[in-house]
Design a protein around this nucleic acid. Structure first.
Lengths: 261, 261
DNA sequence: CGTTAGGTTGAGCAATATCAAATTCGGTGG
DNA sequence: CCACCGAATTTGATATTGCTCAACCTAACG
């Protein structure tokens, strides 16, 4: 029953970071090394990291979903971002010992330690494309954080859910975890409520609306984006403009970058 | 009429960063140098930076307030964070050419360029305490961003405004721009609405409530926190736990750090 | 099969938005 | 000093979104 989620043959991390910046063989090696490392498992609702606690080493999620969480009084909680396979936990490029947030597993989660990333960071010259890819990942993350603020502050229930879903699909597909807009979706409606700042009941009704409109199909733990156009429009989602990031002006792909193996 | 805001004699940047990590004389020199640089002025509503545009050099705000803004359809806008004197604009520790957000002046704003910060960054050994201070500033900023998400997602109008005000006062006092909880407050209620995700009318009514309760005094461009305890409780505000950050474990204050001049 | 977590439905309600009309305030020119 | 102007604030009335509570349903699982 402890069935593992599919991992693309190339390796999750290579897949993800290579898309951000084409990696050379050394860099791929580093990532493969990390993926082979000692793995940790976490059960749902367990904390991978506690706000204010010291961060030991950065981790990557290999399988399962987690979330950055803020807890308020009266059982209120807000998920500030959802972490999916390929996302880093406690990766502070600037050495920052204390976690600014609590990280909680939403499903069973498998992680690997990646202390060499801190090193890779110090040693940009050695792994230039990897460093860059990490930069871009961090930039992308910040962009999504700002998206989330706008979502919670100024969008309606319908818009919030629409924009969050397409953002999620966007992120999953960049890791080859979504095919044709459909993917495994392990969250409960209560999770969704904590993400979107809505009540569970209202999430339920809004989802039904989206289904009735033929925009999504959500059942048996799978979510399919049926009308991407409509959802992008409804949620006013704009993909982060990475184009400019990928090829920084006046900079050519470093070392012997490989486009495809 | 173009009256400038008060600047502490020591210099805004020194004041601010020295509190985060005690600076040595060289580091103070760097900051003083920056403050003496060619200044830029921006009128209210003008953009200091546009989302997706290339960032040339990092800037610091010396006087005036600005905001990171996301614009949606139908004139909706969400302020993701308010920038006050001493805050950096476009400071990407990780070299990231494109701005993830639009920055807009809320009042007349004066800024200085600070290209040497990027250098200071590369060269951590030379200005260790300054580097650390910048780390902490970035960490603090991220913390406040997460605060804001929780605020918008799970707090009531009353709580949102309370927690935002105390957070603001906390930030201002770390720059010596607040005395006894009172400070110059140049924002309109419409700005406040775009910050808190509320309508202007509701902001107005909530402010009146806070006044009636004797928690704040807001008039003639000054805001006074009358009952900090009550506001902290109402907004569930917790100061970022910098204690652990300031003295990283196994690390002693570098070089000839100066506690006070 | 009984239990349980998650999902769905309905009814009533509270918080907040919207709209429209004052009113106040900080200038500014006469 | 006064009259005026536009921006900002305030007020009242009404509309709407989304919340709460409470029940019921369903599927998975031991």
């Amino acid at each position: 029953m402890a069935q593992s989620y599919p991992i693309s043959p190339t390796g999750l991390l290579v897949t993800r970071f290579n898309k951000l910046a084409p990696l050379n063989e050394l860099e791929r090696g580093v990532l493969r090394l990390i993926e082979g490392k000692g793995k940790h498992t976490h059960s749902p609702d367990s904390k991978l990291l506690t706000e204010g606690a010291e961060i030991r080493a950065p981790h990557f999620i290999l399988t399962g979903w987690a979330a950055n969480v803020r807890e308020l009084s009266q059982g209120r909680r807000q998920i500030t971002s959802v972490l999916i396979p390929g996302d880093a936990i406690g990766l502070s490029l600037h050495p920052r010992p204390l976690s600014p947030t609590t990280v909680m597993a939403l499903t069973p989660v498998r992680t690997v330690e990646a202390p060499e990333l801190t090193l890779a960071w110090r040693d940009r010259e050695r792994v230039p494309n990897l460093s860059k890819a990490i930069d871009l990942a961090a930039a992308e993350q910040e962009y999504f954080l700002l998206n989330h603020i706008a979502r919670l502050g100024r969008q309606t229930a319908h818009e919030r859910i629409a924009s969050w879903i397409v953002e999620l699909e966007y992120r999953l597909s960049s890791r080859d975890l979504s095919t044709d807009g459909a993917f495994a979706f392990p969250l409960t409606q209560e999770n969704l409520a904590d993400i979107t700042g809505l009540s569970v009941v209202h999430v339920n009704r809004t989802l039904q609306q989206l289904r009735r409109d033929g925009h999504i199909d959500l059942s048996r733990g799978r979510l399919a984006v049926l009308d991407r156009e409509a959802l992008y429009a409804a949620g006013e989602f704009k993909a982060p403009s990475l184009s400019g990031w990928r090829i920084a002006p006046g900079e050519r792909p470093s070392s012997e970058a490989i486009s495809s193996t």
